Simulated assay, not measured.
Amino acid sequence: MDQVQSCARCPNTTRNPTVRILPSGLCAICHWWAESPHASIRRRELQHVRALAGGGRGEVDALVGLSGGKDSTATLVRVLKMGFTPVAITFDTGYYPAHITQRAARVAAQLGVRHEVVDLRPHIQPEDRASYVLTAELYDREETPLLAERFRELYLLGRERYSVKQREPMAYVRTCQLCRRLVVPAYHREAARHGARVFFLGTNEWVGLSQNPGNGRYTFSAVRRLQPPGAHEPVLVVHLPFLLGAGLEDTVSVLREVGWEPPAGERVVESSANSCLLGRVAEAKAARLLGFHPDTVRLAREVTCGFLPREEAERALAAPHEATGSVRQVLTGAGILS
């Protein structure tokens, strides 16, 4: 078996079959980041986004995804400081912990922002529901070397079919991709409903990565333009902490201003499964069968772009959440599976 190689900057290793370590000692993503003019790109994007304040069709000019966690709370504070008049939106899939909605409502009330809970389940398409079924069936299977091989195959396929434009049903090893099929269309749908032109998210890494055919360098963007077929206007999805070049300490500083503290039993930095019941029941099994934590790539990106110290990411990845119940039970409880 080949020796496992590790990136010199982030937690990525070659245990993940999609990771390549280059002669520089960096994984490909970190290498591209080091060569990218990302700072100048973000300055231009920030200027454009700031100009959208006051640009809604009515009083509301922005939406902010709000869970009440550290990233979304700090993002709401920052959006208000930028001069926007936002509505805070909490999506409901039926499998987020109950405290998410309650905590988001408290944060919005404290900051004087209107808060809405949007149930995404009525918008589940047949092919999405089929993917939920296939994912439950996958996680129902007994852990064997054969299943481990299948998990790795499906992990690779999931990376190839990451775009929400890919509508073919499939089983997802990373259950976050099931949510993504629901929330990305909802960004545009909800922004258009409110007459807003921008949807802010508290995501600490880029929203887009593309290669310049002229010089071969990669562009890391904080802004994504969404305009589904038939839509009259685009909506910009903005990863605000990344756009601002914020680090973890910057976010903690913003949180101190409003007296935010992690809920009991939570640390400031956690894997995605901390705030999703579906991810929680899948995480440990996926980590065992893959041979690496399924959230490694996401947290590695936060390290790559300077938001998160490597040791914080590695601590969050060191102990996958163990949970009672199963993927099927969670989805049945959410009313997605019968």
Rank of each mutant, 00 (worst) to 15 (best):
C7D: 10
T14I: 01
T18G: 04
G25Q: 12
A28L: 10
C30P: 01
A34E: 13
S36F: 09
H48Q: 15
G58W: 14
D61W: 14
G68W: 00
T73Y: 00
T85C: 12
Y96M: 15
P97G: 00
H99G: 03
Q110H: 15
G112N: 10
V113W: 09
V118C: 12
L120T: 09
Q125A: 12
Y132T: 06
T135A: 05
E143G: 04
R150L: 14
F151C: 03
L157M: 08
R159A: 12
S163K: 13
R167S: 13
E168M: 14
Q177S: 09
L178P: 00
V184D: 03
A186Q: 06
R189Y: 02
E205G: 14
N212C: 15
T219N: 14
L243K: 10
E249Y: 06
L255F: 02
G259W: 06
P262C: 06
P263F: 01
A264F: 07
E270F: 04
E270L: 06
S271Q: 10
L277A: 03
R280Q: 11
D295V: 08
V297K: 14
R298C: 13
L299A: 03
L317Q: 04
L317N: 03
P320H: 00
P320A: 00
P320T: 01
A323Q: 07
A323W: 08
S326W: 02
V327F: 13
L331D: 00
L331V: 09
A334P: 02
G335R: 13
